[in-house]
């Protein structure tokens, strides 16, 4: 069975965001790019499936500029992914165009049994590409998944949503699963894994190859702004009783939230 894992590179969560001089984007200088943390759960899920089943090929797939995203693919392959498929482009695509590129790239590869992705990418938090991809591939999905069980052609996926509600869905394969924290504990790449990854194949395709035009981008981010500086914090002194009395007064009279 062929499994595709969709991955995205994002700025490390420690990154302090700076804007470009024209405020039409973020300044990439000094940004450390990492695999989106939720995608690591998807990679781990695919590798575990491969370890538990015969004849499984796990392919990492991503859209982005080769010079940058190559590292993410190498990391995924060092963890245990077999090979990679790279849609090499410098263009800033929107969610739907990205999903169309991924869908066309996956369809061109032939049969597949499972597509995995993180539940969202922590940069934009748009959380749309995986489900758009599922729609374009005509397969069912379960999102924000923290448990899976596979049995003859089906996957049972569990998730916990708002208010502690838990849901379980049974999907016919091929299906799309988007991974939440808690699904598993992603492994670190081992040193032999890192050596092996260098020899694993990365297949490269362009937007042209896939019939994707950047003119079909419908959504762009423009006019970036950093949050306004907060006024200095009011420090409340005295005994715990004094502090609490002062705080409650301020919350009632100044903030008007009590």
């Amino acid at each position: 069975m062929r499994i595709f894992v969709c991955i995205k590179q994002v700025p490390d969560t420690e990154t302090r965001i700076k804007l470009t001089s024209d405020s039409q984007g973020i300044d990439p200088t000094g940004v450390k790019w990492v695999i989106n943390p939720y995608d690591e759960f998807a990679i781990e899920e695919a590798i575990r499936f491969k370890e538990a089943n015969d004849d499984v090929q796990v392919t990492a797939i991503t859209v982005g500029p080769k010079a940058r995203v190559n590292n993410a693919l190498l990391t995924a392959m060092a963890m245990g992914v077999d090979d990679s498929l790279l849609v090499n482009t410098d263009a800033a695509l929107d969610a739907l165009t990205t999903a169309q590129a991924l869908a066309n790239a996956i369809k061109a590869e032939g049969e597949f049994g499972l597509v995995l992705a993180g539940k969202l990418a922590i940069d934009g938090n748009v959380s749309a590409v995986p489900l758009m991809l599922a729609e374009l591939l005509g397969i069912p999905h379960a999102s924000v998944v923290n448990s899976t069980e596979y049995s003859d052609g089906f996957v049972t996926a569990g998730r916990e949503i708002e208010g502690g509600t838990t849901e379980k869905f049974k999907l016919r394969l091929p299906a799309m699963i988007t991974a939440n924290k808690g699904l598993n504990k992603p492994r670190f790449a081992s040193l032999p894994g890192i050596m092996k990854a260098k020899k694993k194949p990365i297949k490269e395709v362009s937007l042209d190859d896939l019939g994707i035009k950047t003119e079909s981008i419908k959504v762009k981010f423009t006019n970036f702004e950093l949050p306004a500086e907060k006024p200095a914090c009011k420090m409340l002194g005295g005994s715990p009783e004094d502090q609490v009395n002062e705080l409650v007064k301020l919350l009632q009279e100044e903030a008007k939230v009590l």
Partner: peptide, 23 residues
């Protein structure tokens, strides 16, 4: 923009080729 909206509307956007934005 909650678990239901995020679970349904990306697919709707793909089916009808609509522009989509959450949050």
């Amino acid at each position: 923009s909650n678990n239901v909206g995020r679970d349904i509307f990306p697919r709707v956007a793909a089916q009808f080729s609509m522009a989509y934005m959450s949050d």
